[in-house]
Design a protein around this nucleic acid. Structure first.
Lengths: 132, 132
DNA sequence: ACACTTTTTTAGAACCATTATAAAGTAGAT
DNA sequence: ATCTACTTTATAATGGTTCTAAAAAAGTGT
């Protein structure tokens, strides 16, 4: 299994559940956005066995901490995650309530001129809201 | 009262509660960021009478819909609002969990090159995460 | 001022995403 | 195989937000 080493290298034991969640998240041609609820449904459809909701939460947070997933900053009652961890941005279609990737090259270079003493910039995230 | 007309023009009846919330939100030298919980505490401190939490939620949402407040897109268990409704952005200090305004002039012009068919850009919001 | 309609406020219940708990199961090391 | 630390699990608890339905207030017409 190709994910065993990846997990072990991160200090995460390669359990059956984690490996299966890896398959659902990363064995896809395209990256995608999801909520925990989306992911739970996807897991139920794709796998024969059940994975507890608590495990899904734990695993997603563990993967996020290790940098295999990113949270998308957006106001919603649910938290959105992205399997695309490269530096990029998002459209948010307010009507359809859907996220669309915006590659870095689709957004001109962003230059933050203001500096805060003793703080470093960790990330710059752009959310472009769309209406009809 | 200076807020009576403002409310009436928006189709909101100028009730005692709404006027008092206006005072707390807009009778300040500087704009500020807040959660509903922050606002409820501020109201409790500044006013003698109690305003129901449901009313605070209703009012904040009404004001947001009318454009007197803005939601700040950030992942948190609470929703953050901003009394500064001008076009601007935010730093988010991850350690202190504090928001800092970033004026539009502090961020170079942002040019979204990608277009989505039949959709217009409603807003462009930048969140700059800070670490030590 | 009064009667009438519509909007607003309110306390409390309900909702629901997320987190905590604690017991059972599993992985890895010796 | 045994031991220890980590992981999974079902379920309970938490907590921000929304809903409900009754009481209060605001607006309108007379």
């Amino acid at each position: 299994m190709k994910y065993i080493e990846k997990l072990r290298n991160s200090g995460l034991r390669p359990t059956k559940q984690r490996l299966q969640i890896c398959e659902v998240l990363f064995d896809t041609e395209k990256t995608f956005h999801f909520t925990i609820n989306d992911l739970a449904n996807k897991i139920k459809k794709q796998l024969n066995n059940k994975i507890s909701l608590a495990t899904i939460y734990n695993t997603v947070h563990a993967f996020e901490k290790k940098g295999y997933l990113k949270q998308i900053p957006i106001n919603s009652n649910q938290t959105y995650f992205d399997t695309n961890v490269s530096d990029h941005h998002h459209f948010y279609d307010l009507k359809e309530e859907k996220l669309i990737d915006l590659e870095n090259s689709d957004v001109g270079p962003i230059n933050i001129l203001k500096k805060i003493n003793g703080k470093k910039i960790k990330s710059v995230e752009v959310l472009v809201k769309l209406e009809d």
